[in-house]
């Protein structure tokens, strides 16, 4: 269950990250990125994150579960942030 929760947190955080203009444009071509996509990513991302938190809380109790959730969330944020510069597709000079 924890694995599932971690996957949800990872996907949710990634979605929220891409919803941000700065990182969305890092990862996809400018024409693919739009405010509608950003909103959709935001909504999905939040839902996935919430799902991860709920799973943790339900399987381990509120206190312990949320503690675990925040721990996983912290690691995921770092993982994403550190990988981004290296995963982003190489771009030529823009505009």
């Amino acid at each position: 269950m924890i694995v599932l929760a971690s996957v949800l947190v990872l996907c949710g955080s990634a979605a929220l990250c891409l919803a941000m203009k700065r990182h969305g444009l890092q990862m996809m071509p400018a024409r693919a990125y739009s405010p509608a996509l950003s909103l959709a990513l935001r909504v999905c991302g939040s839902a996935l994150l919430a799902g991860g938190a709920v799973i943790c809380a339900v399987t381990q109790g509120a206190g312990v579960g949320l503690t675990t959730f925040f721990g996983i969330f912290s690691m995921v944020i770092l993982l994403i942030a550190i990988s981004l510069p290296y995963l982003a597709p190489a771009k030529g000079r823009r505009r």
Binding site: P89, A90, K91, R94
Partner: peptide, 12 residues
């Protein structure tokens, strides 16, 4: 430096 960071730097 991956080229992406060059682009990011300009963006920021």
């Amino acid at each position: 430096l991956p080229a992406a960071t060059l682009a990011t730097r300009r963006d920021i």
